[in-house]
Amino acid sequence: MRRSSFASMECPIAGALERVGEWWSLLIMRDALDGFTRFDEFEANLGIAPNMLTRRLRALSDDGLLERVQYSTKPARYEYIVTEKGRDLRPVIVALYLWGIKNTADGARNVVLVDQVTGSEIVPEFVDHHSGRPLSSMRAEFVAGPDASEEMRRRLNPDSRRTRRDRHKAQRSTT
């Protein structure tokens, strides 16, 4: 059965996917964060059908990631300006960029990330705010937070997780 909404899931990742998990949404936000603001720019850049673009722009505006601002009355035309909430998505876009370079680009450097002021290439690294350690070197895991339901606490129970890890280790060693 196909899931139509992640809204009832108790997970910040599911909540984020509810808003931007559709692939066009992330590509529209990528372009908006790069300074594109108009319907025709998004349409030309992405090769997206106008009806799909209309739906995605409406959803991104309704979710507060873009602000729809009229710039012409005859005919009525709008720009889509990135909001603070939309700017908060930039690290996610950069993380997808990094993952794509490492895992899909076959070494091609078709796109690079640069500082707008200096023009210097940026080599981003995600680090833990408290320790300064790169996230890629940490053994991070999700645990139930203070507001988690009993179901979420059961699912993320560290003891159950260790049992699953042990089971996977045993399977790998026998193959």
Rank of each mutant, 00 (worst) to 15 (best):
R2F: 12
R2L: 14
R2Q: 12
S4C: 09
S4F: 13
S5K: 05
S5P: 05
A7I: 13
A7Y: 09
S8R: 11
S8G: 09
E10I: 03
E10M: 05
C11K: 01
P12Y: 06
P12Q: 01
P12S: 08
P12K: 02
I13Y: 10
A16S: 10
A16C: 09
E18D: 07
R19D: 14
V20E: 07
G21W: 00
W23V: 09
W24R: 12
S25K: 11
L27I: 06
I28S: 05
I28H: 03
D31E: 13
D31S: 09
L33V: 00
L33P: 00
D34W: 09
G35E: 07
T37H: 11
E41H: 05
E43V: 04
A44D: 13
A44K: 14
N45V: 03
N45E: 09
L46T: 02
L46K: 06
G47A: 03
G47K: 03
I48Q: 02
N51E: 13
R55M: 15
R56A: 10
R56I: 10
R56S: 10
R56F: 01
L57F: 01
R58H: 14
R58E: 13
A59T: 13
L60M: 07
S61M: 04
D62G: 03
D63F: 10
G64S: 02
L65N: 03
E67R: 12
Y71D: 00
S72Q: 11
S72A: 12
T73I: 12
P75E: 02
A76Q: 10
A76D: 06
E79I: 03
Y80H: 07
I81S: 01
V82S: 04
E84G: 08
G86A: 05
G86R: 03
G86P: 06
L89N: 00
R90H: 08
V92G: 14
I93T: 03
I93A: 05
A95Y: 12
W99R: 14
W99Y: 15
W99I: 10
G100Y: 00
G100I: 05
K102G: 08
K102N: 09
N103R: 08
T104I: 12
A105K: 06
R109Q: 15
R109Y: 02
R109W: 02
N110R: 14
V111D: 04
L113W: 07
Q116K: 14
S120D: 15
E121I: 09
P124H: 04
F126R: 02
H129I: 15
H130S: 15
S131I: 00
G132Q: 05
R133Y: 09
R133M: 11
L135M: 09
S136G: 08
M138P: 03
E141V: 11
G145N: 06
G145M: 02
P146Q: 09
P146H: 07
S149I: 03
S149L: 01
S149A: 01
E150R: 12
E150S: 12
E150H: 05
E150F: 06
M152L: 15
M152W: 08
R153L: 02
R155N: 08
R155Y: 10
N157D: 15
P158Y: 04
D159G: 10
S160I: 11
R162I: 11
R164D: 12
R167N: 12
R167T: 15
H168Q: 14
A170F: 07
A170Y: 08
A170S: 14
S173Y: 07
T175E: 11
